[in-house]
Design a protein around this nucleic acid. Sequence first.
DNA 1: CCAGGTAGAGTGAGTGTTCACTAACCCAAC
DNA 2: GTTGGGTTAGTGAACACTCACTCTACCTGG
Lengths: 187, 187
Amino acid sequence: MGSREEIVAAAAKVMREQGYAHATTKVIARTAGYSEAMLYKHFRDKTDLFLSVMAEELPALGAALAELTADPGRAPLRDNLVRVARLGLAFYLEGFPIAVSVFSSRELLRSHRERLGEHGPHVLPAAVAGYLRAEQALGRIKASTDVEAAASMLLGACFHQAFLATFEEREPADRADRLADVLLAGL
Amino acid sequence: MGSREEIVAAAAKVMREQGYAHATTKVIARTAGYSEAMLYKHFRDKTDLFLSVMAEELPALGAALAELTADPGRAPLRDNLVRVARLGLAFYLEGFPIAVSVFSSRELLRSHRERLGEHGPHVLPAAVAGYLRAEQALGRIKASTDVEAAASMLLGACFHQAFLATFEEREPADRADRLADVLLAGL
DNA sequence: CCAGGTAGAGTGAGTGTTCACTAACCCAAC
DNA sequence: GTTGGGTTAGTGAACACTCACTCTACCTGG
């Protein structure tokens, strides 16, 4: 891992463990094991570094989720829902402390949004809704079901639980089964 | 409205509109129409001010939601669910930009959590679950339904939608009906 | 085989600016 | 004439960021 990646990883670590306010150039540099000046060899300014953190540390699990939902109809519907819920929770749990940093400033928010373009946070519910629609086409979900609302509730519950766990600084209980069961009853 | 309340309101306004990073003592004071020194007549330090913002600006709608769910069995179940979803979205929409500020620093997070005590953010899902349980006792919801998971999904969807709307700086669509319908199908 | 040159990784010691916060003071009203 | 609401004019500390520099590894002509 080169110095650039070490710095991005250090910034993500500090943001996760200490919060945005403590993610100063000094702390990030010390965590990465470099001098402050080194940050500016790789990044134009601090915003540039933060945008790189968002872009490079967040999407890993998002891709896993997208891949997971690309294969409808194979495993039992309930199993798929449970796996979506588990991956969703893991993703939001890891991403939440970093993602909230973006709200600390309107400029950072706008820059990040522009940088994401069509790959914003709405793609996750859209991907799950797309998966549910495929299941619907296979007849495993009622034709009358509102798949977008269903996807929104399943992922929303994960997101909310990630928020609560981060707020209370505790491990979240695994409620993926219970969520899947309640949702399944209505599908 | 006394100077203290004006300052708290100004701090909330700045946090909502500009983000935590811009919520400096100077900007807050200017927004409130007072000098910086005035802040320190009312609040020991900036953390004290922020904790007051959290405590005084956030719970209004939370109380409304708690009151709403205190009266099960009267209106049709679907109407109640729709109202819960609408109030939940309105609450999270207003509270999200302020609430995320608390994650900018671990100390602020801990102080806020300690100050909240048993009145933390988990009370909302708990209140909704309690309401659903009452409906269950009245026989309007199946006995086998997991009311906590159901409450978590309904509010979670609202929370997630508030996050997306805040991130994209747009008004959210009103999807309360659609959420209620999907949930209702499984209850 | 090695002196001399060079490029890139990395740093120490600052810069000006902005931050939260405070001491001392003002002034109108009872 | 004192008290309470309010301000002016700062303070040291911390901030993002920069400049001039060193060190090391590698290359090249003789």
